[in-house]
Design a binder for these strands. Sequence first.
DNA 1: ATAATTGTATTACTGTGTTGATACAGTTTT
DNA 2: AAAACTGTATCAACACAGTAATACAATTAT
Lengths: 132, 132
Amino acid sequence: MQIQLSEADGTPYYQQVTNQIKFLVASGRLEPHEQLPSVRGLAQQLTITPNTVARAYRELEAEGVVISKRGAGVFISNGVSPLSNKEKRRILNERMDALLTESRQLGVDEATLLKLLRQRSQKFDSHKEGEK
Amino acid sequence: MQIQLSEADGTPYYQQVTNQIKFLVASGRLEPHEQLPSVRGLAQQLTITPNTVARAYRELEAEGVVISKRGAGVFISNGVSPLSNKEKRRILNERMDALLTESRQLGVDEATLLKLLRQRSQKFDSHKEGEK
DNA sequence: ATAATTGTATTACTGTGTTGATACAGTTTT
DNA sequence: AAAACTGTATCAACACAGTAATACAATTAT
C-alpha cells in the first residue's frame, strides 16, 4: 500500500493515513470491496503502533469509506455517502469558502483558480495511463 | 466588528477569529489600512480573554494579513502575500486536492463541483448590493 | 479442534495546544 | 507631563489529543 508518512508536516499520523486512503479511493486507485492491509501489517510497514492504524481505520469507517469486519479485515465500501444532501451541501460550501478565501489571500483571482482546479481535476485520476 | 464565536464547533476561539477576519478581508468587507478593534475591545465584545484575541492578531500578522503597531493598533495590510510563487502553488494544490477528494467522497462529480464553485464565488462578495 | 490471523476495548502516559493572570512597553490624547 | 489607551511578553494551569502497551473477541486457515 502506497502511503508516505511525514514526521514534520504537523498533522498526526492517523490523519495522514486517513487522508491518503481517502485520496486513493477518490482517485480510483482503491476500488470497492478491495481489502486493505491488516492493522498490524500496515503498522509494521509504516513503523508506527498498530493502535494508530486502527484509529485511522475507525475514522474511515465512521465516514463510510471502509467497512471493517472483526477477524476478517477492512474493506473499501460501496462508495455511497451516508450523509444527507443538506449536510453535503453544508460541508462543500464550507470547503469552498475556505478555498476562495485562501485563494484571494494569495492574490489569485477566481478565473485562474477555476482554471487551476480544472487542470488539477484532470490530473487527479491520470493513473489509468500513467501508472508504472 | 461582525464576528460570531461558536462554543461547539471544535475549532479553538483564536482560529475562529482568524478565519472570520480572513474571510472579511478576502470578501472586501475589510479594506487595507482599516483599523481593527483593540485587543481588549474585541475581547470584551466576544467575552473571551484579551490574550486570545492577541494570539489571533499575532497569527494574522505572521501570515501578512494585518500589521500591528505597539501602542497604536492593528491594521489591515496591503494585501500582498509574502510567500513565493512556488509556495503559493503548493498550498493551492494541497487545498484543491482536498476539495476534489471530499467532493468525490460525497458523490459530486467535477462538473457540478465547478458549477457550485462558480456560484459560490459570485455570492462571495455580494455585500456591495446586499449589505443592510 | 487448534493455531494463527484479523479487528476491538481498556487503560495509561505524555506532550502540547489553548486559555488565563499579570506585568511590561510603546503611542496617543488630554 | 501625565493619563489613558494601544500591543507584547512571561508564566502558569488545565485539558485534551495522540500515541502506546496489553489483553480480549471474532474469523480464517491448518
